[in-house]
Design a protein around this nucleic acid. Sequence first.
RNA 1: GGCGCCGUAGCCAAGUGGUAAGGCAGAGGACUGCAAAUCCUCCAUCCCCGGUUCGAAUCCGGGCGGCGCCUCCA
Length: 480
Amino acid sequence: MGLRFLNTLRRELETFEPLSPGKATIYGCGPTVYGHAHIGNFRTFLFYDLVHRYLAWKGLRVRFVMNLTDVDDKTIKAAKAAGLTLSEYTRPYAESVIAESDILGIRRLERYPRATMYISEMLWLVGRLLERGLAYRTEDGSVFYDISAFPEYGKLSGTDLEAGRQGERVVDDDYGKDDVRDFALWKGVKPGDDEVGAAWDTPWGKGRPGWHLECSAMALSELGQTLDLHLGGEDLIFPHHEDEIAQSEGATGLPFARFWLHVKHLRVEGKKMSKSAGNFITVRQLLEEGVSPAAIRHQLISAQYRNDLNFTREGLEGSSKAVGRLLDFEERLAGHPVRPDAASTSLPALSDEAVASFTRSMDDDLNVSGGLAALFVFLNRTNTLLDATPALAESERNRALAVLASLDEVLGLLEVGHRARNVDGALEEWIEERIQARTRARSEQDWAAADAIRQELAGRGIVLEDGSAGTRWKVSPHNG
RNA sequence: GGCGCCGUAGCCAAGUGGUAAGGCAGAGGACUGCAAAUCCUCCAUCCCCGGUUCGAAUCCGGGCGGCGCCUCCA
């Protein structure tokens, strides 16, 4: 299908073909729901969305699952502090991730499994790994993975275990691990865990799952033993994904994921985002400030996922303008006059070229910058053509509109932008009435009255555009 | 210390051997009652030095600068 991804597993571009023709399975590591998701999280989720949409656009039936981690050190600690149970504490955040995803136009997924719902699958995995001699129990009721028993450990991250362990005599008093690099599959119960509902009975004592185990259990049970794609942030390559591989392949004996894609961390105003740097931004905050969802979406998808992306306020303004232009373009094209006897134009060629150029870029490891460029080249050339063409053949116009809609099935910018431009019926009636009044005033050359109405509408966030075909209106971008 | 990334116009960002996409901002012009939208023109030789090559932003070497991961942070 011509689509290539940089597979972290081999660090080179590989042509993507799903294991089962026509169908793709994807697992994306989701957030830990202990607070509101930040824009960095959403760069990642929007990247997931792009993978999801693009594969669907290419004609694949995609089964995409993203987990929500609701039991780990952070959620337990926060729940304890709040005096709530784990589920009481995490539910609002789990809901807000999905609500904000909706607002940003991220397609709903097949499932959003939550770790606490997969305890039995995890126990099965742990049992299996113990059986196969890949794990061992410790005195405190924990179970650790013995990475020395999994020779392929390190293949994803390129970690050379032997080199790192030269002369190392490890004694870890806290956990009693045989080797510092061994990781917890299951953790023995700690004081307070039970009160927040973070302890489960198991054959090896009461306890709760290790973080890495959660993803393996959810991915295997939701998507089968070998996934087509496994996605995550760059920070997860080691140890999280390395550990997932060890667990999953150790248990099944089969390749866990065929392609691993990792998205680079977002920067904010040129710096790493962190609470201490004071540049920690949540999507929730931006939305409360009135920033348009389409602008957020545009900026967060504007760079290819493996490259730096610098999130800036200035850039957000630019994104807002860019999306507004796209919306204006669509309206203009849709409203352009058609005539049965219109001469043919180069519009079909421009339409074809847009799709071809877009596909070429996106096939190249999801080069969204190139994809957006293809779209804007199409916009510019088509506008030029419309300026010079009083009326189009309907088929040509519709085809161009279909191309625009098609590209947006992947980008989702018009989709999200439309929402901000919709107004309710009552307001729309009022707007139409005012426009008619203004048109009368204009026909009488009563410019003062006409301008007064323009101002009146502007006060409600409505912008008017006088054209040869009459007056059109739209919701001001600054109100969107 | 280990692994890796990046350095392209005021800002964001494509391009990885044949003489610089796109977005935003800026300047000038067209159109326009005003405005909006739109169009046209202009605005970079790609951090520095050396090398390979007929030819390099693009490959190699060396600098300088910025950044990420390696701490259950996407």
